[in-house]
């Protein structure tokens, strides 16, 4: 049952008037009550049923249309080539400094700013992707669910211009992003693009949860690590004697953890806006497979169809009316009628 709704349901009170054609004929009335004299053949019997029904249809369609008939929550199937892509953005406050770890000035843009600009370009190139945006800092925040409306995706990414929150709770952010892929993404390519300038320790429970979620619905993982000058990289193996724990080297250990998930994973270390652009171009190249999906559209107006239905019914009525012959104003005397059986 499609979800039908009306803008002005009170007009539906007029619907009983649509029964009027069953009571009153649209045909010309005759002063001669001699209809019984006509032989009731099949076409005229059909016509005498069809005409009131046409009238009823026309009236009902007009009333429904005026009441603003429309369908809500309708699902439309679409098809595209690309991927289901969750962009997971680090909104910790360190993203506001530049790659050189300074406050942004006119010459150098902040990491958040560079990421925002390049991600927006990236979305513009990926016309058929379904993209969602999640953010994380102290807590994970779902911004936009997977959608093909890139306008809203871009406007979620644009909020990166605003100050971020305190910490980098990357584990829960990843769990949120991994859980955002519904069953409709089963056949197509799924990817998470993590954009961050740091990492945090992922607790055991969250690690187990992530393994579980990703094990059930594998995703391609991309980590775009915005490396600040002087910060330790993802790939650097600590020299002997240095501490090598998740607490001292969270980035390296997040990288090690992601490698163990058993899904395609690539990390890009970018220490300048140009490096970010190269990394995004690489991801652009890697993620392209056909995908079909459905999306709810808010409202489909059916008024037009109702008007069209009324117009068609009325056209037939007009046709019927135009075949009416005028009454014989001055008839000749009919020959006397004789009963055949007399």
């Amino acid at each position: 049952m499609p979800a039908l709704a009306f803008d002005h349901p009170v007009l539906l009170l007029a619907l009983p008037f649509a029964l009027l054609p069953l009571v009153v004929s649209v045909l010309r009335r005759s002063p001669h009550p001699n209809i019984a004299a006509a032989v009731p053949d099949r076409p005229s019997r059909l016509l005498s049923i069809a005409l009131p029904i046409l009238g009823l249809l026309a009236l009902a369609c007009l009333i429904l249309a005026l009441a603003g008939l429309h369908r809500t929550d309708q699902v439309v199937f679409r098809e595209g080539r690309g991927a289901h892509l969750m962009i997971l953005i680090d909104r910790s406050s360190s993203m506001e400094s530049t790659f050189a770890n300074r406050r942004p000035d006119g010459a150098e843009e902040s990491k958040a700013n560079a990421a925002r600009r390049l991600l927006t370009d990236f979305i513009e190139r990926r016309a058929h992707d379904r993209v969602g945006v999640a953010m994380f800092s102290t807590a994970p925040l779902q911004a936009v669910p997977l959608t093909d409306r890139h306008e809203i995706v871009k406007s979620a990414i644009a909020t990166m211009d605003f100050p971020g929150l305190a910490q980098t709770n990357v584990g829960r952010g990843l769990a949120l992003a991994a859980g955002a892929f519904g069953s409709e993404t089963a056949a197509a390519s799924r990817a998470i693009l993590l954009v961050s300038d740091g990492a945090g320790v992922i607790s055991r429970e969250v690690q187990a949860q992530l393994r579980d979620t990703i094990g059930r619905r594998p995703v391609n993982l991309y980590w775009l690590f915005l490396r600040t000058d002087g910060a330790k990289g993802i790939f650097d193996v600590p020299a002997s004697g240095e501490h090598d724990t998740p607490q001292t080297r969270p980035e390296r250990h997040l990288h090690l953890f992601l490698q163990t998930l058993g899904v395609p994973y690539r990390a890009f270390e970018a220490d300048s806006p140009d490096a970010v652009r190269e990394a995004i171009a690489e991801i652009d190249r890697l993620e392209a497979r056909p995908l079909a999906y459905e999306e709810e559209v808010p409202r489909l107006d059916l008024e037009r169809y109702a008007y069209l239905g009324a117009a068609i019914a009325l056209a037939l009525l007009v046709l019927a009316k135009s075949f009416e012959t005028p009454f014989v104003e001055r008839a000749r005397t009919l020959p006397p009628l004789r009963r055949s059986g007399a």
Binding site: A143, V144, P145, T147, I152, S155, T159, F162, V297
Partner: peptide, 19 residues
């Protein structure tokens, strides 16, 4: 904390309400 900058309602109705 902003999650979505203002966007046009009709074109983005479905994702916005889902968000």
């Amino acid at each position: 904390f902003p999650l979505i900058e203002p966007v046009e309602t009709c074109r983005n109705f479905a994702p916005f309400t889902e968000a």
